[in-house]
Design a protein around this nucleic acid. Structure first.
Length: 568
DNA sequence: GCCGTTTTCGGCCCGACTGTTTTCAGTCG
C-alpha cells in the first residue's frame, strides 16, 4: 500500500505551495491527500482499474502525479518544491501552533530544517526576536516539542469511549450546563479518534469553561476563551469544548460532528440556495432560518436527517437528497453474540459466567467459540475436549434461564485452507467460526484461495476477522475481498464484523461493499472476559458506518431464525 | 488544481483564538 506515502507527499506539497502563497492549490492538494489517506482500496489497484479520477479531489493533474509516483516512487514537482525549501514539514507541523508560514520564517531566518534544530534554537532564545514571533511563541514551541515526544497519535474508539463518558458525566454536574453532547469523530464512531469534541448549551459560558478547565486529568490548557476551550488530558488526547446558545445547538452539533468533507458539501448546498451555513445556524441574509436542531438544518437544505455514523461524504448526502438513506441497524437490534472465549481456551471466565453476563446485556443467545487445535498459545481444544465442552454446555443450558448457549468453536484455517478439527466433530456443533491465525505473509492469490477453501467447507458458518488487521499494530493480510464476497454468497457463509476495539474487522468501507453485494454479516465481540461483551456497541457502530441494515446482520434474528440460516 | 442540476470558466467553507500587534496574520478545526 503506497496510499500513506502518497498522502504524505500531497500534504507536504500543500504546505510547500502555501509557503509560496500560491492561491487555491494548497487546498486542492490537501483534499486529495485526505481522500487518499482514507481510501481503503490500494491506490495501485485503483490506478490499474483506471479509477483514479473517481477519487474525490483527484483530477487530471493529480492522477498523473499518482501514476508518476507508482512508477518512480517520487513526484518531480514535489522534489522541486523540496529543493526550494528542504525542511521536514511533517514532524514540525505536528507542533501545535506551527504552520507553513512560521516554518518558512524559521528556515529563511535561521536555517531551521528539523525538530532537533528547532529545539536547539528555541532553547537558545533565538526565536523570540523574529518578526511575528515572541517570548510566548518560543515557550509554546518548546512545550509543543515536549508533548510530541510523549504523543501517541490516534486513539482507539473503544478505549477512549469510557473516558469520554466520564467527562460527560463530570460536566453534567455543572448547574450552568443546560444541554451537553459529544460531537466529532467520537459521535461518528470512527474507529480511531484524534481528539474529542464536546458541546454545551449554556447562558453562562464563563462558568462552564471554568468547570471544564478545572478537570483534574488536565495536563495542559491549549486555549481558554469566552466560548471555546481546548485541553490535553493525562491519557494523551485533547478535548475541545464549545459553549453555545440554545438557538444554535443543532447547527453547532452538525458543524462539530463533521466530517469536514460532509460539512463542506452542506455549505455548498446552502450557498446554491443563496444561504449561509455556519456553526450558529442556517442564514438567509442575517435572518436565522434554522439552527435549533440538526433535523431543521438538514430539512431546510432539502435532505433527510443523516445519522452521524454515515457522515463521511461517501454518498450519504446524495442518498438523503433522493430520500434513499438506508434504514441502518439500530443499537438495540442485536439479539445475541456469536463470538466469545471462555476459560476452556484463552478466556478468563467460565461458560456460565459469560452466559449470565450476556443475558444481563439483553442478549437471548451466546455462541461459545473457543480456540481449537494447533493454536497452542491460546490453549486450543482438540476433538476430545471439544466434545466434552459440548456436553458441559448441554448441561448448563438445562439449568439456566433466559439465554441459550450455542455450541461453537473458532477453528484455524491452515495454510492450505483446511481446518484443524475433523468434519465429523464440527458437524456436531451449532455454529462453526473459522479464522486465519498464522502464516499472514502469503500472496493475495494464495490467501484468497486459502479462505475460499475454508468457506467451501460445509461446516463453516462464519469467517471471523476476515482481513486480520490489528489497529495500530498489524496491517490486514493480502486478500481479494471481491472474490471473498462472491464465495460468501455462493456458499452461504457469513463474514464477521469483529467488534473488538483493536480489530473492527471487516471495517466500515468493506462492510459497505459487502452490503452492496448482498453478503450477509455477523457481529461478534471476540470477548475473552465478561467486560468485553459490551464491545458489541462498537461492532454495531461499525456496521452502521458501513450502511448495514437489520436484514444484513444475522444476529439480529431470533435463535430459531438463526438456526435456519446456519449450515446444516 | 478541482469541480459542475449556474459544466470547460470562474469560483473555491468559515469563524474562534492566540500572539504579536495597534488592526491583523497565522493556525486550527
Amino acid at each position: 500500500m503506497k496510499n500513506f506515502q502518497l498522502a504524505k507527499i500531497f500534504y507536504e506539497m500543500a504546505d510547500l505551495l502555501e509557503m509560496k502563497e500560491v492561491p487555491f492549490k494548497p487546498q486542492a492538494y490537501e483534499k486529495a491527500a485526505r481522500s487518499i489517506e482514507s481510501l481503503s482500496e490500494d491506490i495501485e489497484e485503483a490506478a490499474r482499474k483506471g479509477n483514479l479520477e473517481k477519487i474525490p479531489g483527484v483530477g487530471k493533474n493529480i492522477a498523473q502525479k499518482i501514476r508518476e509516483f507508482i512508477k518512480t516512487n517520487k513526484i518531480k514537482d514535489h522534489e522541486n518544491l523540496k529543493k526550494e525549501c528542504p525542511i521536514d514539514i511533517e514532524e514540525m507541523t505536528a507542533i501545535e501552533g506551527l504552520g507553513p508560514k512560521k516554518l518558512l520564517a524559521l528556515y529563511k531566518n535561521l536555517g531551521i530544517k528539523n525538530l532537533i534544530q528547532l529545539e536547539k534554537a528555541a532553547k537558545g532564545g533565538k526565536l523570540r526576536n523574529l518578526e511575528g514571533f515572541g517570548l510566548k511563541t518560543e515557550f509554546n514551541i518548546l512545550k509543543g516539542i515536549e508533548f510530541i515526544k510523549k504523543s501517541k497519535g490516534r486513539f482507539l474508539l473503544g478505549f477512549i469511549l469510557p473516558t469520554v463518558r466520564e467527562i460527560e458525566k463530570y460536566l453534567k454536574k455543572s448547574k450552568s450546563a443546560e444541554k451537553i453532547s459529544i460531537a466529532g469523530s467520537v459521535r461518528r464512531k470512527k474507529e480511531t479518534i484524534g481528539d474529542v469534541d464536546i458541546l454545551i448549551v449554556s447562558s453562562r459560558p464563563k462558568d462552564v469553561i471554568k468547570q471544564f478547565i478545572s478537570m483534574p486529568e488536565i495536563v495542559k490548557i491549549w486555549a481558554k476563551g469566552a466560548t471555546k476551550s481546548s485541553v490535553r488530558l493525562k491519557e494523551g488526547f485533547d478535548v475541545d469544548l464549545r459553549v453555545i446558545k440554545e438557538e444554535s445547538f443543532g447547527a453547532a452539533l452538525q458543524y462539530f460532528t463533521g466530517n469536514k468533507d460532509h460539512n463542506i458539501k452542506l455549505r455548498k448546498i446552502a450557498i446554491e440556495k443563496g444561504w449561509k451555513l455556519n456553526e450558529y445556524g442556517l442564514f438567509q441574509n442575517k435572518r436565522r432560518i434554522a439552527g435549533r436542531s440538526e433535523e431543521s438544518i438538514y430539512k431546510k437544505l432539502g435532505l433527510q436527517w443523516i445519522p452521524p455514523e454515515l457522515r463521511e461524504n461517501r454518498g450519504e448526502i446524495e442518498a438523503a437528497f433522493n430520500d434513499q438513506l438506508p434504514k441502518i441497524i439500530d443499537y438495540t437490534d442485536i439479539k445475541g453474540d456469536l463470538h466469545c472465549h471462555t476459560d476452556w481456551s484463552d478466556g478468563t471466565k467460565t461458560i456460565e459466567e459469560m452466559a449470565k453476563a450476556a443475558h444481563n446485556l439483553g442478549h437471548s443467545y451466546l455462541a461459545i467459540t473457543d480456540h481449537t487445535g494447533t493454536l497452542k498459545i491460546a490453549h486450543g481444544l482438540n476433538e476430545k475436549k471439544l466434545l466434552k465442552q459440548m456436553n458441559e454446555i448441554d448441561k448448563i443450558n438445562k439449568r439456566i434461564q433466559g439465554i441459550r448457549i450455542l455450541k461453537g468453536a473458532e477453528v484455524n484455517i491452515k495454510a492450505d485452507g483446511t481446518l484443524d478439527i475433523k468434519d465429523q466433530v464440527l458437524a456436531k456443533l451449532d455454529i462453526v467460526v473459522a479464522g486465519v491465525h498464522s502464516h499472514f505473509n502469503m500472496t493475495k492469490k494464495e490467501m484468497t484461495r486459502r479462505i475460499i477453501r475454508a468457506m467451501e467447507n460445509k461446516n463453516v458458518d462464519i469467517i471471523v476477522h476476515p482481513t486480520g488487521r490489528i489497529l495500530k499494530k498489524r496491517k490486514p493480510y493480502q486478500i481479494d475481498l471481491e472474490k471473498i464476497f462472491k464465495t460468501a454468497k455462493r456458499t452461504e457463509t457469513f463474514l464477521e464484523i469483529n467488534a473488538y476495539p483493536e480489530r473492527l474487522d471487516l471495517n466500515d468501507e468493506a462492510i459497505k461493499k459487502a452490503v452492496e453485494k448482498e453478503v450477509k454479516l455477523s457481529i461478534g465481540t471476540d470477548s475473552h472476559s465478561v467486560e468485553h461483551l459490551k464491545y458489541i456497541e462498537l461492532g454495531i457502530a461499525t456496521a452502521r458506518r458501513g450502511w448495514a441494515e437489520e436484514k444484513d446482520i444475522i444476529n439480529t434474528k431470533s435463535v430459531l431464525q438463526l438456526f435456519k440460516l446456519l449450515k446444516k
